[in-house]
Every structure is written in structure tokens, then in C-alpha cells.
């Protein structure tokens, strides 16, 4: 007798992949209901999370990504809010897999080959996911009275990011006015531009972003590394802190040898006091 679990898996396969021949002995019209409900549901979550990406991609490309994501079976989280991250992971992994397949010509028959996405769209997808992720993090702002001996931490709601493209300006309109079409091959012509962004929750808890430069983004990421290091090594207290003003000055003097110490101090003081006011950094 057939194991009911095998039957469950066969039904799931038939639902997620309409190209599979319906050999499970159910009426196609009834199977269609599940195929549509489940695809539309997951497509809705993906389009809510990646509205700009969806608007730029040709509908058939977008839908085949969602379809293959649904088929992929890598969705292990019971939380709907995690669908976006799982979809982002799927998109990213697919690029390397598709590239390898193209090079070696060993693509299997069963797996539909997805169109490779240009780098700027992969970065856009990441940026859209970061915005969603920031919006659901707890707001950790408690105190904005920064002193030179304060310990700083980067809250979970802050991301300092470096991209090769200006992801925060990309939109369908922007691409159209730049003469691009929906065709992703042509769209790869977009000019790279090193872009540094900080996405954070402001003091009201709203998602905000600011453009910044490499060294400032590095400051935020370095402070984050320090708190991770401190957590793992039990380093606490101001004496050993790595994120007081003087400790940060020493660090930046090392990574930027030859820079006037006053310039470093001014840069740090200005950046940190601004970031603490905004909620990019919080005082431990």
C-alpha cells in the first residue's frame, strides 16, 4: 500500500509545479485551485517585499523566479515575514548555479533555466530586503546623550551598506528615462557607481536611509564588529571598550596612517554625534 506521506509529497509537487504531469489521479480543475491559490499567495508576499524589482522585471521573468522559488523546497521558515529573505537567497544562489550551468552545459532537463539578472538588480533586491528587515527590528534607542567615553553599539535596525550601483535611485521610471527597456540584457548597461548607504530606524521608528561614504560606512561596521567581539570575549566596561572616542581615534589612525589626528577626531565626533541623534548608533 502506498505510504500516505508519499502521496502528500506527490500532491505538493503537482501543486507547486504545474509542468509536472498530473498522474496523482485528481481532477485537473481541482488541482488548478491549489496551484493558483498557492502561487498567488507566495507571489503576493514576494511582490510586497520587492515592489521595485518586480516593476522592473519582465512579468514572465518575475513569475518564473517566483515559480522556481516555490518549487525549490528551500522554504524552511514557518514565518511569512521570512519569505522575503528566502526569496532573496534563492535569487542570489540561482545566479551562481545558472552561471555554472551555462559554462559547463550540464543543465538538467527538469530544471527550468532562469534568466540571469544583472548585478544592479541583485543589489536592488538586497536593498529592498534590507528596508523590510529594518522595519521589523525592535527600536533600541534609549538615550542620545553621547559622551566621549560612551560605549557605542549598532542596533539591529541599522545597516551600513556598500553597493556597486546606486540602488536607492533605481526605479522603472529611472531606467526608462535612461533609455532602457524591460529587457534585462539591455538593462545591464546601467553605469556602476560606488554607493554607500545607511538604512536605519529613526527615533520615531520609521525606516530611513542616508547616503554616505566608504569611511563612514566602515565606521559603522567597525563599531558593530567591536560589539560582536566584545560579546564573544566578554570585554565590557569603559576601560577596555573599543568604541569610546579615543579608542576609535586610535583605530582610525592605524587604518588611515598619515592622516592628521585632528581631522580624524573631527570626523568621528561629527559622524558619531549625528548618528546618535538619528538613531543609527545607540549608546550601550
Amino acid at each position: 500500500m502506498e505510504d500516505f506521506r508519499d502521496t502528500q509529497q506527490a500532491l505538493t509537487n503537482a501543486i507547486v509545479d504545474p509542468s509536472v504531469t498530473n498522474d496523482i489521479g485528481v481532477e485537473q480543475r481541482r488541482l488548478n485551485i491549489y496551484q493558483e491559490l498557492i502561487f498567488n499567495n507566495i507571489e503576493g508576499f514576494c511582490s510586497n517585499a520587492f515592489p521595485v524589482l518586480k516593476s522592473i522585471l519582465e512579468q514572465s521573468i518575475w513569475e518564473s523566479y517566483v515559480r522556481q522559488f516555490l518549487i525549490s523546497g528551500e522554504k524552511s521558515s514557518p514565518y511569512f515575514v521570512d519569505i522575503a529573505e528566502q526569496f532573496l537567497d534563492f535569487i542570489t544562489q540561482t545566479q551562481t548555479q545558472t552561471q555554472t550551468q551555462t559554462q559547463t552545459q550540464t543543465q538538467t532537463q527538469t530544471q527550468t533555466r532562469l534568466a540571469l539578472l544583472p548585478q544592479y538588480l541583485l543589489e536592488l533586491a538586497h536593498y529592498e530586503w534590507v528596508e523590510l528587515n529594518v522595519s521589523i527590528q525592535e527600536n533600541e534607542i534609549t538615550d542620545n546623550d553621547w559622551q566621549v567615553d560612551s560605549n557605542l553599539i549598532v542596533p539591529n535596525s541599522t545597516w551600513a551598506l556598500g553597493y556597486q550601483y546606486p540602488v536607492h535611485t533605481i526605479s522603472k521610471q529611472m531606467l526608462q528615462s535612461a533609455g532602457h527597456t524591460n529587457n534585462t540584457e539591455q538593462a545591464t548597461e546601467i553605469e556602476p557607481l560606488d554607493t554607500f548607504l545607511i538604512v536605519y530606524q529613526d527615533t520615531d521608528g520609521d525606516v530611513a536611509f542616508m547616503t554616505t561614504n566608504a569611511i563612514t560606512a566602515h565606521l559603522v561596521n567597525y563599531i558593530d564588529e567591536c560589539s560582536v567581539y566584545a560579546q564573544h570575549n566578554g570585554v565590557e566596561g569603559s576601560a577596555e571598550s573599543l568604541t569610546t572616542l579615543s579608542a576609535l581615534e586610535r583605530y582610525f589612525q592605524q587604518v588611515q596612517p598619515g592622516t592628521d589626528s585632528k581631522v580624524i577626531k573631527n570626523f568621528l565626533t561629527e559622524a558619531i554625534s549625528d548618528f546618535v541623534q538619528r538613531g543609527v548608533l545607540v549608546i550601550d
Binding site: Q8, I42, K75
Partner: peptide, 22 residues
């Protein structure tokens, strides 16, 4: 709503005795 990963919607359990115990 999952079989080899989540599909985020409800699917019918086969009506068998084994499934009852499962």
C-alpha cells in the same frame, strides 16, 4: 502546509488510518 519545505497554504491530509495516528 509543508512537504519538503513550506508552501504557506493549507493542503488536505489523506484520509487514511495511518495519517490519523501521524
Amino acid at each position: 502546509c509543508s512537504s519538503g519545505g513550506h508552501v504557506y497554504d493549507l493542503m488536505p491530509i489523506p484520509f487514511t488510518e495511518e495519517a490519523v495516528f501521524h
